[in-house]
Structure formats: C-alpha cells, structure tokens
Amino acid sequence: MNAIEIKNLTKVYQSGAKALNEVNLTIKQGDFFALLGANGAGKSTLINILTGLVSKSSGEAKIFDFDITKDSENSKRMVGLVPQEFNFSVFEKVIDILCTYAGYFGVERKDAEIRAEEILNKLGLWDKHNQPAMTLSGGMKRRLMIARALMHKPQLLILDEPTAGVDIELRHEMWDYLVELNNSGTTILLTTHYLEEAEQLCKNIAILKKGVIVKNGSIKELLQHMDSQTYILTVNNIKNLQDFFGNGVIKCDDNTIEVTIENQINISEFILELNKKNVAVLDIKPKNNRLEQLYLSLLKS
C-alpha cells in the first residue's frame, strides 16, 4: 500500500506565487523518505497541503488511500505532523499539550495520559510533564513536538526540519528514535537541510526545485548516477604534480589537492598515477557528502 500518493498537485497562492507545479509523488508504506530542496522550493507547502493546513489549487493527494479533500477526517487520523516552528501554547503544561492534542484525534483523556507517559519517558521528558512548556529548553521543545505528533499513534509521521537548531548529541538521539519508529512500521516523511541526515536515515528521496520534483528515487540509485565525485587528498611532494593541475585537479595548499574524478574512473587508478610521480597519498576524504554533491549539482543545473 502507498502511504502517500500525489498526482498533479499544484498550489498557487493568492499572491500569484506558484509553490507547487504538477507534483507527482508516491511514498510506500514503511518507507523512510526525505524531501529535499532549497528554502522556498515548496517542501513546506507540500507538507501543509497533506496535513490540511493549506488548501491545494488542483490535483489530488491520498494518504493510505484516503483522499485528503473528500475523506479528510480519515486521512488526518493517519498523520502525525512535526512542524518546523514551535506551535503549542507555551502557558500550558506539557501533559496538557499532549492530552489536548490526542483529544482532538478522538483519544480519551485516560488513554492519552498513559500514552503521554510512555512517549515522554522514551524521549526523556517525563520529569517535565507537569511544567509549563515555556520552561523547556529548545531541544526539549523539539522533543515535545515529536511526542505530540505521536500521541494518536499515527501510521505516517511527517517531520518538517525536525533537527534544525538542535545540538549534535540530541540530533543523534532523535535519529535513533526515528529509526526505531520506522522499524516498528511507521512511515516517515522528512524534510531537512542536513543532507547527511537524509543519507544516513532515508531509503528514498525526492528533490524539489521551484515547485517541481527534479529527482526521485532510492538514494543508492541516485548516487550511482552521479557523473563525478570530488575528493580532498593530502599528499607529499606536491611539486611533482605540476602536470596534473587543471583537468579536474586543483592545488589547495602545499600539501592538499582537490580532485574531481569522473564516475567511470576509479579513484585507485588516480592514486596509482600519483605514485608513479613519486607522490604518496597521506589522507583522502570526499569533499562533500555525496548526497550534498548530487543535490548541489541538481540545484545548479
């Protein structure tokens, strides 16, 4: 079954700005999917349409076969949304925020309280459950938003840049929790600006550019189709490399070069060429995260 099925989805705002242009996208149940794109590419608009926060102009979208317009009540039941910005009442207690949200989804208060305790314990927030949300730190507020989205046990979790502004330790904890959720059967749709996050967590991605999907598929598959890759090499005897400069090789400093290698050439062949010139490679690393490289090349094209 498809968790999300979008056909020819278009959104034109009242200002005339076309945020989405005939978008087609399918996300399978159980997938961990990343939606990437620059600011203003249409990611949030797409998410907001799916969750009922923005009305579509044309096209159709289904969540677990429930049409978001004709059967919005059922489609909304399936989704948990973690929006980009904090959107809870800061004066309310953590437990009340969670139970109120669950109540909107038809969960009885007593069931919601049990569920809240379970999730808050998991996310390390239970000791704050009786405190007003305004007393939480930024990272705690992020976790509260995730907890809230999970209160009604949704089949599909949509996260709009959930780790923006979150410290590295917490980001890794959140990644672990999301992987655990995905392994337990929850489909996850994620937008993020951290491409290593997408590469590490997601099976499939789509890249949005000016409201159009320019790339869509499995990360493995997409990376295989990259034309070239850039590496940073630390070498000795750099003076022996005069003939190499130009043709994809740039001298960065007295010990470092940047090499862009076409996909059909193996990096080891290049290293052998260097060895022939009596140059040893002391260290090698990719210049960018591979997905980042693909992403940038697509945005530039």
Binding site: L53, Y101, Y104, F105
Partner: peptide, 8 residues
C-alpha cells in the same frame, strides 16, 4: 494548527 491538522 493542532486543531486544523486533526480530524475535528
């Protein structure tokens, strides 16, 4: 938005 994303 809590209400708007819900089936209420």
């Amino acid at each position: 938005e809590e209400l708007l994303v819900s089936p209420t």
